[in-house]
Each structure stands twice: as structure tokens, then as C-alpha cells.
Write a protein that binds this DNA or RNA. Structure first.
Lengths: 186, 186
DNA sequence: AAATCAATTCGATACATATCGAATTGATTT
DNA sequence: AAATCAATTCGATATGTATCGAATTGATTT
């Protein structure tokens, strides 16, 4: 579905050259032989051959043999594919292979000891939130905890359980019953 | 009007990198700080800064200062410009600055002596046509010539005036009066 | 004022590639 | 069969740039 990431990079790499763009522009008007393109662009035949080869690799141009000439033409099919290149869904899919939890993992690595406990509670908002997401994983979803139970679990991470508890609620990762006693994970 | 050639090359150059594409994909979902992007992509901050700078150069992303963070976001305006990137008229305009007569000039250089006369008459069709376009320029548009006058002009280029005359008519660069005598340039 | 933090800049390095000339290939013409 | 021609391939060179670490900048916090 849509266009593979590597394929997309290759596509842009091919277009990211002034002379190849000119070739595309010329072929948009009529087919050309390699020699004609070389003369028109002021390049050597070997250079043009290289460019045409790269354009062909991504399917932008195709060649037809005619005598000892090669006549190149633009591939309309490849151009149609470009219509949706910059649509939102396609852009999002570009980031699909990315490890989106990398930031949390880095922060967790910085602030935890080998046994998983916290060296300290981060003062910075973003880092604190990453740590809170880390801590909250020890609470089961759908289960209710008394304040005492909450503190016991939090004490595995840091002695300042009151702060952790308050921040977890503030960050909307846990919720507290209106009346008083019980907590649960959101 | 439309998009300048150099600007277009710069645009593709910027997109022609896997990590920059990923950044675009991530920013398509929400704004990120440089540090977050570095962590998510597994790159150093300096590298990400470099990429963001290049993306900003072509207007694809913009930065907003927040504390000592820089929050980057995708520029929707730049994305809209891409809608017509691959339209026929835009592609043709890419070749606008190109010297389309380069081929003729090359052939003419190959087949003429310093005084402008022909070393020989090309046997190959394409080259012959280029030479004929060169020769026919010595005839005025709208003026009628007798066969004798035609031969006199052609003799400046080559002794085989009969061949040149016949080819000029065959290539539809000149026309001959049905009855017989006179020629004119088309 | 000093320490901290993210971002940026700078210099160095490693890798990719545009371009050319020379040699080769495949086809056509003589 | 030999000569000619366009195209392609190959090797070398020069340029561009992605990446990193170190140093610097600008802002915030202590």
C-alpha cells in the first residue's frame, strides 16, 4: 500500500539533479535520442547515459531501440503515481518504520538504575512525563488500588511516593476516586 | 509563475534523504522538538539540527522558540505548492532555460569549415536535416528564386547543389512552383 | 552569579555521485 | 569483411554532504 520509504527516497534522489530535471522537462514534450539530449544539454554521451539509466531505474523514462539509436520517452504511469505523494496519509506512512518510543527509552536509560529504580525524579516536564509513562506500566489496567497499595508499588521506584502519585494523577495517567480512597490507571 | 528550476532542484535535494523524510513524516502528525526527533531517529542533536535547517531553507518546516527548546512544525503552505509539481506545463517549464538548438549547432560545427562551407553532406537523416536548416537560412522568407539563383547560393556550401536542392524540397524547407521554374522558402 | 540545558555552529571524516575520457558493445552501412 | 555509428560500461577525479564530537550560544533554573 502507498509507496515504500526506500523507493520514495530513491525517487527524490533521482529528481534531485538539475540536468536530470531538464531531461524530464524535454521528454515531457517529445521523445529524444541520447545523442540529441547530450547535444542539447551540453553534456557528454556517457554522462547522459548515466542519467537516463537512473531515470529508468525508478520508472520515469523508458527506452526503445531504433537502429543503433535508443529513443527515450517519459513514462506517464510514473507521473500519475506522484499525485498522492504529499497527501497526509502518505507522509504519515513515511514515519511508520520509526521507533516512536525512542525518546522515552533514552530518558528511562538516563534516570534509572540497573534494578529499574529511579536515581531521581526529573524536574523537567517532558522527561518527567516519560518517566511517569514508565512507572505507570506497573499498574494493571482496570484494577483499583488503595492509596497504600499505590505507595507500595511506587516505592520500588523512588522514596518520594507522594510526588510520583500526585504527578501521575496530574499527567492523567491515573485517576483518583472523587470520594477519596481508590486509584486506577487510565 | 510556476516554480523556478533551481528552487525545484533544491526542493528535491532536501527530500532526497531518508532521515529528512522521516522527520517530515513525524511532523505531519504533530510538532516535535529537536531533542525528541534526535531520540526517535537515533541521531545526534547536531545532525538533526542540520536536517531541520535544510528543511527550513526550502520552507517545509518552521521553528518556534519555547524556553530553550525549538519546536518544529510542518508548513502546510509548502505542501500545497507540491500539488502541481508534476503537471505537464510545469514539467515543460523545467526545460525552458535549455538551449534546444544545441543539437543543430553541434552538427553544424562538425560538418562546416571555418568559412561556413560544408566539408560534406551528411548521409544520416538527422544530421542532414540539421544541415539543411542551416543552409536554408541564406534564403529570404517570402522571396522567389530561379533555379539558377538557388544553385548559386547553394554553391557557397557545397558543389553538389542538385542534392542540396532536392533535399531542401524533400524536407519541406523549400517549395517548388508546380509549373517548373521558381523556388521559395517555407 | 553559577550551573544547567537544548540548540546551533564548526571542523573533520567518510561516503555518494556527477562528470569525463577511454574502451567496449551491438547494430548498420559500405 | 571492414568501417562507421550511437550507446553503454569502466575507471578516475572532483565535488557535495550526512554524520559525529567539540565548542559555542542563549535561555532558564538554582
Amino acid at each position: 500500500m502507498s509507496i515504500e520509504n526506500e523507493e520514495l527516497v530513491a525517487f527524490f534522489k533521482v529528481l534531485a539533479d538539475a540536468n536530470r530535471l531538464k531531461i524530464v522537462g524535454l521528454l515531457a514534450q517529445r521523445p529524444y535520442s541520447g545523442g540529441e539530449l547530450a547535444a542539447v544539454l551540453g553534456l557528454k554521451a556517457s554522462t547522459v547515459s548515466h542519467h537516463l539509466s537512473r531515470l529508468a531505474q525508478v520508472g520515469l523514462v523508458s527506452a526503445r531501440a531504433e537502429g543503433y539509436y535508443s529513443i527515450y520517452r517519459l513514462e506517464e504511469k510514473a507521473l500519475q503515481k506522484t499525485r498522492l505523494l504529499f497527501s497526509h496519509t502518505n507522509l504519515v506512512s513515511v514515519a511508520a518504520g520509526v521507533d516512536v518510543d525512542g525518546y522515552d527509552r533514552k530518558v528511562i536509560g538516563d534516570f534509572t538504575r540497573p534494578d529499574g529504580s529511579l536515581k531521581e525524579i526529573p524536574a523537567q516536564r517532558k522527561k518527567l512525563e516519560a518517566i511517569l509513562r514508565y512507572v505507570v506500566r506497573d499498574f494493571e489496567l482496570g484494577k483499583r488500588y488503595s492509596e497504600k497499595q499505590v505507595n507500595e508499588i511506587l516505592s520500588r521506584f523512588h522514596e518520594d511516593t507522594a510526588s510520583l502519585r500526585r504527578e501521575l494523577v496530574g499527567a492523567k495517567l491515573m485517576e483518583r476516586e472523587a470520594g477519596g480512597g481508590e486509584y486506577w490507571r487510565i
